[in-house]
């Protein structure tokens, strides 16, 4: 052991209940996430459930889990959840929301799920203005199945099915889901955020909260796209993957609100 690192014990004068600033929310089950180290899925699960806890709507919210790495979202999010077939989360959420309009309803989907196999369900739910929140994790690959090219894979980006880099002439350009859906009149709120720095985590949390408030007001379809990472399939360390988000992902997928509801 070459490195000498001295662990400092906790300070009992500070570690007191009255000084508690942050702890894991009760809306997450005790089960540790199965996600790879540093994966944005974990961060988004965490903040989404923090918002649910802060809004006090644990009993009033129903989530729809996708197929993809986050297929077991229901094991972690301690709220009512329904699993959907691959890509069909928006259709399932439509049914739930229409039967139970007083409940908050969200889907949680990856880019393969939402923008490849589920393109039709996503676009039509948005076009109908279904009063649901769609949480969209854009990590530019199919994570679960080991890193195939997704509709959102960047130009030139290497994946297992674009080993020489994505050639836009034969494989098309990455789809900007947020901009695409924002053109539909029944879509209320579209924002693109990220969770790769503490400041961005704060902003994404705020966006999720806003979307749920808009849903309460009955404003319609809300999309929160989150530019995320897949360290394992990008073959990077978590820190390198976050740098890739800054250097490559955000220039193509700029952060910020794409569409905001008109204030009534």
């Amino acid at each position: 052991m070459g490195i000498q690192v001295q662990e400092i014990p906790i300070n009992p004068e500070i570690v007191q209940d009255e000084n508690l600033l942050y702890c894991k929310p009760d809306t997450l089950t005790p089960k540790p996430f199965h996600y790879c180290p540093g994966c944005g899925h974990s961060t988004v699960h965490k903040i989404l459930m923090e918002v649910v806890a802060e809004m006090g709507i644990q009993e009033e919210i129903i989530g729809v889990a996708p197929v993809g790495c986050s297929v077991f979202a229901y094991d972690y999010m301690d709220v009512d959840m329904q699993e959907a077939a691959h890509g069909r989360a928006c259709a399932v959420a439509t049914g739930i929301k229409r039967m139970m309009p007083d409940k908050f309803v969200f889907t949680y989907q990856g880019d393969g799920d939402l923008a490849a196999i589920g393109t039709a369900e996503t676009i039509h739910a948005a076009n109908r203005g279904e009063n649901i929140l769609v949480v969209f994790i854009n990590n530019a690959v199919y994570g679960m199945t080991s890193g195939q090219m997704a509709p959102t894979t960047l130009p030139g980006m290497v994946s297992t099915t674009s080993p020489f880099g994505r050639d836009v002439h034969t494989m098309g350009y990455p789809i900007k889901v947020s901009e695409l859906l924002a053109t539909l009149p029944a879509v209320a709120y579209v924002t693109r955020q990220s969770v790769h720095t503490p400041g961005n985590v704060r902003k994404t949390k705020k966006a999720l909260q806003k979307a749920l408030e808009y849903q309460k007001q009955g404003l319609g379809f809300c999309l929160v796209e989150i530019v995320s990472n897949c360290p394992s399939n990008w073959k990077m360390t978590p820190l390198e993957s976050n740098k890739f988000i800054d250097d490559k992902m955000i220039p193509y997928y700029p952060l910020g609100d794409v569409k905001v509801p008109e204030v009534k």
């Binding site: 400092i8 702890c23 894991k24 540093g38 961060t43």
Partner: peptide, 25 residues
Amino acid sequence: VQDNCTGCNNCALICPDAVITVYRK
């Protein structure tokens, strides 16, 4: 490894696995 934490909460915000509890006085 240092006794200089200010309780800024950055580490807890970024920790994907929510394993950090922060105290501030």
